[in-house]
Simulated scan of single mutants.
Amino acid sequence: MSLVLPSEIIVERFLPTVRAMLAGRLEEQGLTQQEIADNLGVAQAAVSKYVNGRATVEERFRDDPRTVATVDRIADGMAAADMDGYDALVELFELIQEFEDRGPICELHEAEMPALRGLGCDLCVRGVDTEIREEREALASVRNAARILATVPGMADHVPNVGTNTGTALPDATDVTDVGAVPGRIYTVGGRVEVPANPEFGASHHVATTILAANEADPDLRGAVNVATRDPLLAASHDRGIEPLEFDADYDDRSERLRKLFREHGVPRVIYHRGAFGVEPITYVFGVTAVEAAELAAELVAAADRDSPR
């Protein structure tokens, strides 16, 4: 994906177009090319290019009535010596702000960066939106965690039959829609871990409710991965100074029961259950983000496979 800043469009397309239009208007007002150059702060050779139609202009700016009106005001003011460079900058800056708010600058920016289309980007107008940044960071964490799970040797053997998932909660998350995860879960095909889709918020109920319960007790923990419960993996946790916490496999009121458990015992980085009728044994590995959880899970899987009898 190309990386283009809106400021590049302003410098490379908006300003040359406006200068060319101003040069033409000022010439019509009777100013010499040197006088026009002095007003615009450019060389006389550049003015010659502008007035002779040899400059490249952007039609979206040139043909916009707002540009025409602004250029006319500036040209009239400069010709009458009623407007100085500062006044002209104020006029142009106000026009740029209009054009950045879903205007020609925004349109050209989306044309240069097609990935922005449909996002309702208003970065130029509102600045960096903290909530949007946090959402993007959470989804990026899940995406990177899924990539880790898909590339770790031996991970496929630790994916439960029902599939696995990984998630990251937003700061101050309150429900499952505040937790990003992989839709449809991560599964294995032919001994490989397959990630079926890009992460979305609200895509996982079980991982999300587990993360939310842990996060309520320990706000630093916002990520998790679930894998199959295996004794070698639990032993690898012990070896790393992690005391896995066992919990009831029953799904009824699991969220509240986990919250109670975490209030009483804290939140270790590994919790597990041994399964129940129709419920596969599952282990959850926690981290500050999904990436940290996936990295710890990868370490435990590697240690478990290394220490397991062949």
Rank of each mutant, 00 (worst) to 15 (best):
M155Q: 06
R102Q: 12
V125Y: 04
G167N: 09
G118K: 06
D72N: 10
L108H: 10
V162K: 09
F93N: 15
E110S: 15
E112T: 07
A138H: 04
V159D: 06
A146R: 00
F99I: 02
T130C: 00
E112K: 14
M78A: 12
P153E: 06
L139E: 03
D76S: 13
L108F: 05
A75D: 06
V71S: 03
M155E: 08
G120L: 07
D72I: 01
P104V: 02
H158C: 02
E135F: 01
A80D: 10
V152L: 06
A115N: 09
Q97R: 14
A138K: 02
A111T: 13
D87I: 00
A138N: 03
R136P: 04
A69W: 05
R126S: 14
E98Q: 12
L95T: 06
D129V: 10
C106W: 07
N161P: 03
V71E: 02
I96M: 07
L89F: 12
T168Y: 01
T166P: 02
D129Y: 03
C121S: 14
L139G: 00
L170F: 01
P160W: 07
R136I: 07
V162H: 09
T151R: 10
L108Q: 11
F93E: 14
D122E: 13
M83L: 15
R147F: 01
D87K: 11
T164Q: 04
E112D: 15
E100C: 12
I148K: 05
V68I: 15
L116K: 08
I148L: 13
T164M: 08
A145E: 01
R133D: 10
D157Y: 02
A115D: 12
E134Q: 06
L139F: 00
D122Y: 04
M155Y: 04
I132P: 04
C124S: 14
Q97H: 10
V142I: 05
V68H: 04
P114H: 13
R126E: 09
E94I: 00
L123W: 11
T164W: 01
V125D: 08
G120A: 11
G85R: 10
T151C: 07
V128G: 10
V159I: 15
E110G: 15
H158A: 07
V68A: 15
V162S: 15
A81D: 14
R133V: 11
E135Y: 02
A115P: 05
L92T: 04
D84N: 15
I105K: 02
T164R: 00
G103D: 01
D101R: 05
E98C: 08
I74S: 13
R73W: 03
L89Y: 10
A111R: 13
I74N: 12
A140Y: 02
H158N: 07
C121L: 09
M155N: 09
V71Q: 00
E137F: 00
A138I: 03
Q97T: 07
